[in-house]
């Protein structure tokens, strides 16, 4: 994924697929987003530019992101025997309710990664360090047995660092 700044407009991300096509997203500074498809003969020129509203972009990202995530998880389970996936429910008394994912420092402390959060039957794929936990979140974590137990302990607040 390549990122190009568009001074005065916003930023463009684009991606050349393995089938040789280029797709991009122009994110305008005023919040507008355009999905851009490029010409095959003239890869510099856009064939179509489709404006997406916030809801539409989110719906599209969910569909693409969620299916990708689940596919990756299934793949991981098959190829790496020692690697486990676990869904950890955030305990009601967890110190991290309302706090950021980055604050848990889960990856550096346990080597296990939080790859998704399930909230209200929605999948939030690859949450960043700025992501804030809420009560009743289910945290999807990938790692070794030890790592997963570590994350469970951190999220429960049992870990003393």
């Amino acid at each position: 994924m390549e990122q190009t700044p568009l001074p005065g407009i916003g930023v463009r991300h684009d991606l050349v697929t393995s089938s040789g096509r280029t797709v991009g997203v122009v994110s305008h500074r005023n919040g507008r987003r355009d999905l851009v498809l490029y010409d095959v003969d003239d890869p510099d020129s856009s064939l179509a530019s489709i404006p997406l509203t916030d809801d539409e972009a989110e719906a599209l990202a969910d569909v693409l992101g969620a299916s990708l995530m689940l596919g990756q998880l299934a793949g991981l389970r098959q190829q790496a025997a020692g690697l486990l996936t676990e869904q950890i429910a955030l305990p009601a008394g967890s110190p991290f309710v309302g706090r950021r994912l980055g604050d848990t420092q889960a990856r550096s402390r346990t080597t296990a990664s939080i790859v998704a959060v399930l909230r209200d039957r929605e999948v939030i794929a690859s949450p960043g360090p700025e992501f804030r936990f809420e009560a009743n979140d289910v945290v999807v974590t990938v790692g070794t047995r030890r790592g997963l137990d570590g994350v469970t302990a951190i999220l429960a607040g049992d870990d003393d660092g």
Binding site: L6, P43, S45, S49
Partner: peptide, 24 residues
């Protein structure tokens, strides 16, 4: 020029950053 690029649907084009950077 910004208006023309918008009207002609060229904001996403790969040469647009070149145009914009010359203007900047």
């Amino acid at each position: 020029i910004a208006k023309v690029l918008g009207d002609l649907g060229r904001v996403g084009n790969r040469e647009t950053p070149v145009i914009l950077s010359v203007l900047v």
